[in-house]
Amino acid sequence: MKMNIKPAFRYQFDVFFKGSAITFLVIMAAIAALMVTSIYISADTTTISFTGYGITAVIFLFIMGIVNIRSDLRLCLQYGVSRRTSFVSEILAVLSVSAILAAAGELLTGIAQAFSAGNSQFLIADLYQLIYVGPDAVSLSFGQHILSMLLNTSLTFCACLFGMFFSLMFWRLNKVWTVVAAISIPVLINVVPILLSRLGINLILLINWIGASPFNFVLFFLLLAALFGAVNWLLLRRANIKEAK
C-alpha cells in the first residue's frame, strides 16, 4: 500500500516543533535567570542547581503525546492520509523532535556550564551526568554530550509514546472501562512490583542494569517505546475516528 508520509510528517513535525521551541525558550530563560541570580545578584553563597532539562522535556513530550495523537489523526484522515501513514509519520515526527530537543539541551547545558565554570554558586547538570558521571563534574566531553543526547532522546521518545498510549486507551474505552482503567493503573503500579518480587523477579536488578551503562538505559527505553508503539497501533488500527467532543 502506498504511503504519503511527507505532508503528514511536515504537518506533525511542525506541531511538535513549535511546542518544543516554546518549551526550550522557557527552560533557557529559567536557566539564564537562575544563573544571573545566583552568580551576579544573590549575596547568598549557597549553590543553586538546575538539573531538570531532561525531566522537563519528558513531561512536555508525554503531554504532547496525549494531546496530539488524536487531533493529528483526525486532520490526516480529513486530508486523505491513512491512519497507518498518520501513525508512522507521528512517530517519525516525535523521534525527530525528541532528538532536536535533546541536542538543543546539550548545547544549552554545555554553554551554561562554560559560563558558570569555576563558579560554585551555580550548577547545571542533566540526567546522564547525574547518573553516569556525577554532579560535581564541571563539564562534559563531546562524547559524553552525545551519550547524554541519546539518553534524553530515548527517554522523551518513550514518554511521548506512553502519552499516546494513555490518550488512545481512554479514547477506545467506554465510560465503565475508563473508570476501571483509571482505578487499575495506580493499583497495578503498586501491586506489580510486589507480585514480581514474590515471583522471584527482582526489579532492583533491572534498575541496576539500566544504571550500569548509558547504552543499557537507551536500549531499555527504546524497547519500551517499541512496546508502546505496537500497543498504540493495535489500539488505533480499527478505531472509529470521530470528531473531538
Binding site: M1, K2, N4, G80, V81, S82, R83, R84, T85
Partner: peptide, 11 residues
C-alpha cells in the same frame, strides 16, 4: 485500506 494513493483521491 491504509492506501494513501486511493484515499488522497477523495475528500
Amino acid at each position: 485500506e491504509n492506501n494513501d494513493a486511493a484515499l488522497g483521491k477523495a475528500f
